[in-house]
Design a protein around this nucleic acid. Structure first.
Lengths: 306, 306
DNA sequence: TCTATTGATAAGGATTCCTTATGGCACTAC
DNA sequence: GTAGTGCCATAAGGAATCCTTATCAATAGA
């Protein structure tokens, strides 16, 4: 005979009848009527082709298990418990209350936007584990492609049409010139690229944003390249020269340096969420993506103006 | 939201779709049509409020799990395995292929009938564990009452109307006189109790069967009491005297001793199966009881005649 | 003996499940 | 590009299951 297939509800009924010693009380607990429980138990007994409870209808007022029923009871309870564990776990998972979220971001966003965003996001999900990596856009994209992270925050390089990646723009990051507060530029509100040619310009990791723009000649003018951001800031504070940076990469609350938007050409990099095309996100990753979208739409302009 | 309740079939469908990478093949395996699987999976996805498979209908021809689905898969498999284990175990149990059978019997039946019966009974159930105890009828009854055994084989003493015990008679065991082959009685075919008064009569554990019969005076006539059966037999073989024994207690294949039925009075003890009233037996115990009933009905008379 | 309680049973409606039939989409072959 | 094929989704109707109300049978207690 083929193995029977139990229903969880059915097992629950059995356990309740056994433990509450009665069909009526069990029915109440199950939010069913008594005949429903009778039928449920009988169905179970048929599946097992054995009786689970002593002669009902007999003199003994309260129902008792047969030896077979006693043997079955703990197994039924274990099976129910196992089921409920899985159900609970999956429910938490799908409400992104638990699980593992792997995230990679470019440093500028990581420093300027994510601290506040993430602290808000994780506020009500203490069981969610988050792994965070920061790196430049290419590396972030690579991590997403290799599925080393669930989701990335980066800008999409021109060449990057890898097709199996989806980009959702979130922030617009405008390029500007950074100089010391006592530099002549510090007082102006906008700059043309040609004004920079007379300056000692330090290139940095973000300078490739000038490529393919009319300001490209600046790249070859430049004598210095400093890729480490902390060193770069120290050099600028020392007055060694000026540099170009996207606004988000410009250190917040720095009193010695000034940021002046470059208006001609106006160079903007779009930073957003990167994920694999045609792959769904884990519930936690999806929740984070939505959270970022919702909590930044209004900030986008405000941040650039400040 | 209330926890969802999975159906085992549903989980199976999920696992099959995931492992066979397709709804069609899974449907085939499930002996269902493809739409049935679609609906089943969709129902599961609704319960989890998350998608389990990547965009079906898309270019990729073979179905792939989402991260969430990948997380769910092993848990679903475990749950199914657990269920099947329990189902299998219960099925074996209800076919009395496994489990633990505790049996108590009076020694006479244990020696004369049970060896053959039990060896036949266990022939096709190698996984069934049997615990066997032998003791006199009172002790067997007590074990049954205390639920130390599932089933007992004994005779019902007169006083024993304990009401919560059911007795199913199986064997009729006639009392007789046992003497050495060279004793004058050895040649007769029946005896009257008064003929015993001139003999040296040894009482034994079964002598209480004479109580409440017209042969009761014999008990006080008797000089010896030997309760141990092996000693008793040795004494009889030595020609120390004669005794009364039920037929089943008379050692089989003993060439030195003879058994002569006592005809006046004819004393018969009924031996049968003892179990608790209003309690069901475990499947194995029930199977054994039925087995004994079926395999002894025809032997009953034959054995007494032999 | 009458009543209250417990579980079994019958019959009907509600729900769920599964089937056949069909539709949409992407890929493949000409 | 157009037809064909393979995949899954969807729709609608019938079948099976589940659950309910109403009632019955047996027991225990008054």
């Amino acid at each position: 005979m083929a193995l029977p297939e139990f229903k969880i509800a059915q097992l629950r009924h059995f356990v309740w009848v056994a433990e509450l010693k009665g069909f009526h009380t069990a029915a109440e607990k199950a939010c069913r009527t008594q005949p429903a429980i009778s039928l449920s138990i009988r169905d179970l007994e048929n599946k097992l082709s054995t009786v689970l409870f002593e002669k009902r209808n007999a003199k003994t007022s309260n129902t008792e298990l047969t030896p077979f029923g006693r043997y079955f009871l703990p197994k039924a309870k274990e099976l129910i418990a196992h089921h409920d564990n899985v159900a609970q776990d999956m429910a938490l998972m799908s409400e992104h209350k638990t699980g593992h979220l792997r995230l990679a971001s470019v440093p500028s966003i990581a420093c300027r936007m994510l601290p506040e965003l993430l602290s808000k996001f994780i506020a009500d999900v203490p069981e969610l584990h988050i792994s965070f990596y920061d790196d430049n856009s290419e590396a972030v994209l690579r991590k997403v492609e290799k599925q080393q992270v669930d989701i990335g925050i980066a800008s999409l390089p021109h060449g990057h049409e890898h097709a199996d990646i989806t980009f959702t723009p979130i922030w617009e990051d405008q390029l500007g010139v950074v100089c010391r507060e006592d530099h002549p530029f510090a007082e102006v509100t906008e700059l043309h690229w040609k004004e920079l040619r007379k300056q000692r310009l330090i290139r940095n990791g973000t300078s490739r944003l000038l490529e393919d723009t009319e300001a490209e000649p600046l790249l070859s003018d430049s004598q210095f390249l400093i890729s480490n951001m902390l060193s770069l800031i120290a050099m600028l504070e020392e007055g060694l020269g000026i540099t170009t940076l996207p606004w988000f990469a410009f250190p917040k609350n720095n009193s010695k340096l000034r940021f002046i938007p470059l208006t001609t050409p106006k160079i903007v990099r779009h930073i957003g969420i990167v994920q694999l095309k045609n792959k769904s996100l884990s519930p936690a990753a999806e929740a984070l993506a939505n959270f970022i979208l919702k909590n930044t739409n209004q900030d986008k302009t405000k941040d650039l103006e400040s």
